[in-house]
Design a protein around this nucleic acid. Structure first.
Lengths: 136, 136
DNA sequence: ATAATAATTAGGATTTGACCTAAGTATTGC
DNA sequence: GCAATACTTAGGTCAAATCCTAATTATTAT
């Protein structure tokens, strides 16, 4: 079986997020995949929203949901595996906090995308304007 | 049990994705789900990038990929079902173009998230500053 | 009319995702 | 020590996602 080295000691163990690849260039596609995938579930987005107010324990985070705890915890694992949150266990309580760096990857992709299509609209605009001028 | 196999979130109401399209305020979670889900595949993101240059036919879009055509076309369907592209068939050629409105939903969510997170940092900052002042 | 092109339909195989219940392990409070 | 608390592990169901090949339909070119 494959996966992150979770097995050794879950205590205070921070799951190693995937490497981002190039620091200043575009991140590896697989990382962006994971971020968008993690954001595609309403429970997970709601958890991120909750965590942007303050860190919280597993049971605090789970409280609003009728979902069984193991199912909910799996959502937390998805968020952590994809680097959107970090967690630390102290005693029997695991506390989660937001890790906003990876959200930036999603924002960046969308920003690039927006710039590209806006540039295209500009070109189209210029073209249409020229057509209009030429037809006078 | 009626069609609710996965609907554990209190807010999740299944609505036809198209129905909730253009709307002020926060869109239905399911629509945002679909947008992020559509963006979580590298092939689909690449198609969107390609389309931000200009509209293109199915075979033009498929050309760079070694994937079988029916598999590729399914990606196009996912994009269209989630409102990220539109298509039109003329003769035997179907042409796709970008539909950027839905991308804005993703941007908006990320923007709100960032604002929340930054507001929190500000509060923390103010708090720490106050501690420092008080300790003088 | 026939052949080539563009896309679609039909029907799998396999994997991943999102839930569940039941039982287990540490930690902490009394 | 014993019970409650806070997760964690194990194992299972069911649906959806992602790929495939083969065959088909519709359109255009020769």
């Amino acid at each position: 079986m494959e996966g992150d080295a979770h097995g050794a000691n879950p205590e205070t163990q921070i799951v190693t997020p995937q490497a981002t690849g190039t620091q200043q260039g575009h991140p590896r596609a697989a990382v962006v995949d994971g971020v968008f995938r993690a954001l595609s579930d309403p429970t997970r987005r709601a958890v991120l929203e909750r965590l942007s107010a303050s860190p919280a324990s597993v049971s605090e985070l789970a409280a609003p949901y009728k979902m069984a705890l193991p199912s909910f915890v799996e959502h937390l694992r998805v968020l952590e595996r994809n680097g959107l949150v970090r967690s630390r266990k102290v005693g029997r309580v695991r506390t989660y906090q937001l890790a906003p760096e990876r959200l930036k990857l999603a924002e960046d992709w969308l920003g690039r995308q927006r710039r590209m299509w806006e540039r295209r609209l500009d070109r189209l605009d210029a073209y249409l304007l020229k057509m209009k001028e030429d037809s006078k």
